[in-house]
Amino acid sequence: MIPHQIIIRPLITEKNTNLMTLNKYCFEVDRNASKSQIKAAIEAIFNVSVAKVHTMNVRGKMKRRGREFGYTADWKKAIVTLAEGSRIDLFEGV
């Protein structure tokens, strides 16, 4: 898999913004990607060095439309901790 197929999008929320102060960045990643693949992809895309990768599978939410109901897709979240001195200038300094 190429890096841009692994990293789907950064997750920018209030909670994740607070994590950035700890040098941790959150991404939605491919459900089949492993931690090492994620680490390699982040290092390749952002040119940084990754210290740790935590992942979790997020269950899809139940959505109802009248009497019909279904689920949104399950997905995988990765919290990437960068090595000291590394930083992703995704938004800052725009």
Binding site: L11, E14, T17, F91, E92, V94
Partner: peptide, 19 residues
């Protein structure tokens, strides 16, 4: 999206609305 009202930091606001 992703933030409660008044909680988004400046760089997010700047990115979202434009300079």
């Amino acid at each position: 999206p992703g933030f409660r009202k008044g909680k988004a930091p400046r760089f997010i606001v700047e990115n979202y609305f434009g300079r």
